[in-house]
């Protein structure tokens, strides 16, 4: 086991795994709506095509990033992780505080099913439309996963490990989803989003710092206090935002 496994490798793989769970659960709702409306064939074909495109993105982008000098790569990836991670964390805090509504899988399923039922045309055309709907859902939700895999993978050469973390999440959601055959509304999506937001923000600060020439005390170990700082800030901010929201307009 590498010496920085618990401070770098594990959080990177866990971030890819947990972020994938969040995104795949959302994509699965649409895929299930497609399957329930037009059958499994377009649902599986659309999903497989989107996964192939996402795999290609990771396979091309990941190794290509190795040719960029490490300081520039850390700075660019760090800033992108900061923007993305803090965006997720902000949304998760607002949802945890009750300021923003939680994502409702049952509602998303009903909306997609109604939209697919409203389509008209020849059976073959309807199958195509359904397949494209599944393709788009998996591709759009998977873009965030692909970014996380490439970003956390490129910074420390963990592309395969992060990819495996994401693939494990895909497999888990698809197996559980196929078994229960309904939207996975019990998955604590916002808690996962909160956790991933914390991890990505910590990675973002760390790599951005490395990119601009910061000397972190304890090197990689500083990721733990950075994550703790964002976690604590997130929890406190959720309480303050809830109190402010419940008080009503001043």
């Amino acid at each position: 086991m590498p010496p920085d496994f618990w401070t770098v490798d594990f959080p990177a793989i866990a971030a890819a795994f947990l972020a994938s769970i969040v995104e795949v659960v959302e994509a699965f709702t649409i895929v299930l709506a497609v399957a329930a409306t037009r059958g499994w064939r377009p649902a599986i074909a659309g999903t497989a095509a989107a996964l192939a495109v996402l795999g290609l993105i990771v396979l091309i982008l990941g190794p290509a990033l190795q040719f960029i000098p490490i300081h520039i790569l850390q700075l660019v990836v760090g800033i992108l992780l900061l923007l993305f991670g803090m965006g997720w964390l902000r949304k998760a805090i607002l949802r945890a505080a009750g300021v923003m509504p939680l994502h409702d899988e049952i509602e998303a399923f009903a909306e997609e099913t109604a939209e697919l039922h409203a389509q008209s045309g020849a059976p073959r055309t309807l199958q195509w439309i359904a397949g494209i709907a599944a393709f788009k859902a998996v591709l759009l939700e998977g873009l965030e996963v692909a970014f996380i895999v490439v970003a956390v993978g490129a910074g420390k050469g963990l592309l395969w490990e992060a990819s495996l973390g994401a693939l494990a999440a895909y497999a888990l959601v698809l197996i559980v989803g196929a078994a229960v055959h309904r939207p996975l509304s019990q998955v604590p999506e916002n808690t996962l989003k909160f956790g991933v937001g914390v991890m990505l923000s910590a990675f973002g600060v760390f790599w951005t710092g490395e990119g601009i020439g910061v000397e972190w005390p304890g090197a990689d170990l500083v990721l733990l206090p950075l994550a703790a700082l964002f976690l604590l800030a997130g929890l406190v901010l959720a309480r303050i935002a809830r109190a402010s929201f419940e008080r009503g307009p001043a």
């Binding site: 805090i93 607002l94 505080a97 600060v205 710092g209 601009i212 910061v214 000397e215 950075l226 402010s244």
Partner: peptide, 27 residues
């Protein structure tokens, strides 16, 4: 080293401002 602490503190402050601003706006 101070730059690192400053960067982390600035990010938390930016996050706090974004969250509280949104909460006020939705209020």
């Amino acid at each position: 080293m101070t730059a690192g602490l400053l960067l982390a503190a600035a990010c938390v402050a930016v996050l706090a401002e974004a969250v509280l601003r949104e909460a006020r706006a939705r209020n």
